[in-house]
Simulated assay, not measured.
Amino acid sequence: MSVLASGSTGNCIYVESESGSLLIDVGLTCKRTELALNKIERSLNDIDAILITHEHSDHIKGLKVIAKRYNIPIFANKKTWQAIESKNIHVNREQKFEFNALNYKEIIGLDVESFNVSHDAVDPQFYTLSQNDKKLSVITDTGYVSDEMKGIIKDSDVFVFESNHDVDMLRAGRYPWVTKQRILSDVGHVSNEDAAHAMKDVITDRTKRIYLSHLSQDNNIKELARMSVEQVLNHHDVDTVSHVELHDTDKDEPTRIYTL
């Protein structure tokens, strides 16, 4: 797997198995998605499926063009498909597949489970992907992490976990107060500290690495996010040196391919 891009401006994750490859979200333009894939020696021609989490532009920016140029099956839940179509993004019927929350599908040989999150989209959902006792969980764009979410993602080998903002930076920043309230709300985004407190509840002995993702361009920096998460995890006896590795993600540079 590789986090091709993550942040306020665009999100896209690459996952492959022995049977094929998929993308979770296409929040980059088609051209930027192809460039990102090329950096890890892959191509859009290799992609066998796309999983959509919700209809916000930083998760579907490239969908219209990619769907038109490539005959890739695309999965989203019913309400998200309706929201996508309301944005004048039309996908051929044969490429559209409905994948509602709290369901399982086998895609490229992976067992994919969908689950709800708390975010101000019409029906946002994220995914766990499992095969051969290996598990990857992706959870971003949520205002909080509920016990139900924790139960689904717990005991993963790898997490792509939102660490969106530093609360002090957000409160002191240039955003209008209504925007700050939205980000801090239960349907906004989790802060560095809140993310870390959720992480400590889902990390187990099998967990090897966590990718800190969806960092705010204006209200966070990589070093601060990593330091904040490390402090909380270390305080709760999670060793971030020899047990669980924390990894940065970037809006422009993909992470190196990692094999679970």
Rank of each mutant, 00 (worst) to 15 (best):
M1G: 13
S2E: 04
A5W: 11
A5P: 06
A5R: 14
S8F: 10
T9H: 14
E18T: 13
S19C: 04
G20K: 07
G20I: 07
G20A: 09
L22T: 00
V26K: 05
C30D: 09
K31M: 08
L37M: 06
K39V: 00
I40L: 06
I47R: 11
I47P: 09
I47Y: 10
I50M: 06
H54Y: 14
D58Q: 12
K61D: 11
V65H: 04
V65T: 15
A67S: 15
N71A: 13
I74Q: 09
K79N: 13
K79A: 13
W81I: 12
E85V: 01
N88W: 03
N88S: 15
I89N: 03
I89Y: 02
V91S: 11
N92L: 15
R93V: 14
Q95P: 02
K96T: 10
F97A: 01
E98D: 06
N100P: 03
N100G: 04
E106I: 15
G109W: 06
S114K: 01
F115E: 08
V117I: 12
D120Q: 07
D120N: 12
P124N: 07
Y127C: 04
K135Q: 07
S137A: 14
T140S: 03
D147R: 07
D147M: 06
I153A: 02
V160Q: 04
F161R: 02
L170K: 12
G173Y: 09
G173C: 07
P176W: 14
W177K: 13
V178I: 08
A195F: 01
H197F: 15
K200V: 04
V202N: 01
I203L: 05
K208W: 08
K208D: 12
K208C: 11
L212I: 05
L212W: 03
L212N: 05
S213E: 12
D218H: 12
N220I: 01
E230C: 13
H235R: 14
H235D: 14
V241Q: 14
V244N: 03
T249V: 08
K251D: 08
E253N: 12
T255H: 08
I257K: 13
